[in-house]
Design a protein around this nucleic acid. Structure first.
Length: 472
RNA sequence: GGCGGGGUAGCCAAGUGGUAAGGCAGGGCUCUGCAAAAGCCUCAUCCGUCGGUUCGAUUCCGACCCUCGCCUCCA
């Protein structure tokens, strides 16, 4: 089934087709973190979204090369390095490691390449030189190099491909410090920022003098290096459309004269408890904050993955608690299927509901990643499996084939299935003591032990096959 | 002021010109000595408000109300 995606460039849902003549390889670039702090839940929505895109492409049979930059030099970083009296590398290294750890906790597949801006000065400088040579960039009297939107437009190029821009109506000056740099036009943006005393040790030599790259240039330089001058997909949060992505297009197309990216995908922001996230309101969460509250990365991933990526999503703690329940339901069902499938079997059978699952799931994702509809297919399947499990009408072979279908679906969802936690000896001893008490009809003692187990973090539930222990 | 999203059950959230998926919570039931974060069933005469088009609108059009985002820090 052909995968359809909403392309911000055309503002329409389009059938995705890779540039690769063989129709196999796909280049995917996602704007990564600026490592000046721990990433918050809003940032994570975007990265989980990127992970969904990558996994869906793989599920659709494509061979994806996933690139995500690490922006490790930028105004805010320099400011904090100065405030903390530390070095750039030490400061950014800490947050980069935290970011990659969190990414893993959310079960996002690691990008194949994670280039750092500071590791690509040569490429960045070469790209700027190219832009200067082509006449769309100029060095101002302050020593910084700027991109000229007027000259770029003069070459017949379009500035404002992602967002309708009306420079006359823009409230320039309201949130822009116009006096900071000596640009020819307010809309021009910095490619290379000349060294200033506040930069401390953070500067690199270049043909334009000592300084550091502007905000957008590293994405152009690194994506072109990793994926070529024209590539398939570029993702990011919706706020990056302008100016970041618009400027990336201008820099890249201005330098290469070729179309930069075929499909631009933008993820919507989220609200937390119905409000815009802010530290003041107390609804600003990093992944670490949520883990400290007892939630898992898997639960956060599930919740972030329940709504369509182009809709604002309301992230709530209540929703996160609900995610726990919903996942427990899937785990329970998959666990039962595993148990049944473990029984030796000879025949190969596939229940019809598996076909329905795969079919509905695939169709939902193909329709611009309709993940909500995809989940509906999963829960319909769970209900059907539970029913058949309960009435004992599922054969071990059918259970095994159901698990195969589930694994396939799970390669996209990435919520895994928690392995049954092995209970330690003391817990097992308690469970056994309870069974003994039960057999002796000493229910008071049995219940006391059950409470004790609960206090130790284990739930004991009786089943037809005897008591089962579950970690809370 | 310019541009662009939204308003669907207690909460979250899909969707359609022909009468509302799914999840959580709630209620009922089953299993159980009692239980369970176990299973099954149930849960929107209705989709922000008011008009219009239509045999028929939650879905299309218009107005209005509310809300969110971008407009050079931003996921």
């Amino acid at each position: 089934m052909a995968l359809k995606l909403f392309n911000s460039l055309t503002r329409a849902v389009q059938t995705f087709a890779p540039l690769d003549p063989a129709g196999k390889k796909v280049g995917l670039y996602c704007c990564g973190p600026t490592v000046y702090d721990f990433a918050h839940i809003g940032n994570w929505r975007t990265f989980v979204f990127a992970d969904l895109v990558r996994r869906t492409l793989a599920f659709s049979g494509y061979e994806v090369k996933h690139v995500m930059n690490i922006t490790d030099v930028e105004d805010k970083i320099i400011q904090r390095v100065r405030e903390n009296k530390t070095t750039l590398r030490e400061f950014t290294g800490k947050f980069e490691t935290a970011f990659l750890d969190d990414l893993k906790a959310l079960n996002c597949q690691a990008p194949h390449v994670t280039p750092r801006a500071t590791g690509h000065m040569a490429e960045i400088i070469a790209l700027i030189e190219k832009l200067v040579a082509r006449g769309v960039a100029y060095q101002a009297t302050d020593g910084s190099v700027y991109f000229s939107i007027e000259k770029y437009r003069g070459c017949g190029c379009t500035y404002g491909q992602l967002q309708k821009l009306n420079f006359d109506e823009m409230r320039v000056g309201e949130r822009v410090s116009t006096d900071e740099y000596e640009k020819e036009a307010v809309a021009d943006f910095a490619l290379w920022k000349a060294r200033v005393p506040d930069d401390g040790d953070v500067f690199w030599p270049s043909p334009f003098g000592e300084g550091r790259p502007g905000w957008h240039i590293e994405c152009s330089a690194m994506s072109i290096k990793a994926l070529g001058e024209t590539f398939d997909l570029h993702l990011g949060g919706e706020d990056l459309k302008f100016p970041h992505h618009e400027d990336e297009i201008a820099q890249s197309e201005g330098a290469t004269g070729k179309p930069f990216v075929k499909f631009w995908l933008h993820g919507a922001h989220l609200l937390v408890e119905g409000k815009k996230m802010s530290k003041r309101l107390g609804n600003y969460f990093t992944l670490r904050d949520l883990i400290a509250k007892g939630f898992t990365g898997r639960e956060v991933r599930y919740l972030l993955l329940t709504a369509h990526y182009r809709e604002t999503f309301n992230f709530t703690l209540e929703g996160l608690a609900g995610a726990k329940s919903a996942l427990a339901r899937i785990d329970e069902c998959v666990g039962k299927l595993r148990e049944l499938a473990a029984i030796p079997k000879s025949e190969v059978q596939s229940p019809k509901s598996n076909d329905a699952l795969i079919e509905k799931f695939t169709a939902a994702l193909a329709e611009d990643l309709n993940i909500s509809a995809a989940w509906a297919s999963v829960f319909e399947w769970v209900r059907e499996m539970n029913k058949r499990l309960a009435e004992n009408s599922l054969s071990p072979a059918e259970a095994a084939s159901a698990l195969t279908a589930w694994d396939k679906i799970n390669s996209v969802l990435g919520i895994g299935t928690t392995a049954e936690a092995e209970a330690p000896a003391d817990i097992l001893a308690l469970a056994e003591a309870r069974t003994t008490a039960k057999l002796a009809k000493d229910f008071k003692r049995a219940d006391t032990i059950r409470d004790e187990l609960k206090a130790k973090g284990w739930i004991i539930a009786d089943s037809p096959k005897g008591p089962k222990l579950k970690k809370i």
